[in-house]
């Protein structure tokens, strides 16, 4: 499969990356090159093979329902670029 410019734009928007016109061409070429490499996987017969998401981890461990975290507002906000009223600030979002 090969990516056209429109698709590259669409996935860039999904990933919130801005691709200038001069970066678009080389990026499209690189991505297609990588995809061609990945396309080797089509040689493998995988009809009855179960997909594998993780390794060595049979089941999820559980946590007790106790409040032992939070109440660290200074730590939460310590690295924030913009804070007001103990909240993070972003340009206005219209719903």
């Amino acid at each position: 499969m090969s990516l056209d410019k429109e698709t590259v734009k669409r996935i860039a928007t999904l990933a919130r990356l801005k691709l200038s016109d001069e970066r678009m061409g080389p990026m499209q070429q690189d991505l297609n090159h990588i995809l061609t490499f990945i396309d080797q996987l089509n040689e493998v017969e995988t009809k009855d093979v179960t997909p594998m998401a993780g390794v060595n981890t049979p089941a999820m461990p559980f946590r007790k329902d106790v409040v032992n975290d939070g109440d660290i507002v200074e730590q939460v906000l310590a690295n924030a670029p913009e804070v007001a009223c103990n909240m993070f600030v972003v340009p206005k979002v219209v719903e």
């Binding site: 499969m1 089509n42 493998v44 995988t46 093979v49 997909p51 594998m52 390794v55």
Partner: peptide, 15 residues
């Protein structure tokens, strides 16, 4: 399916 799931299946074979 074509990429992610396929890769997960081949990961099973490698394992």
């Amino acid at each position: 399916d074509a990429y992610y799931l396929k890769a997960q299946r081949v990961r099973t074979l490698i394992t």
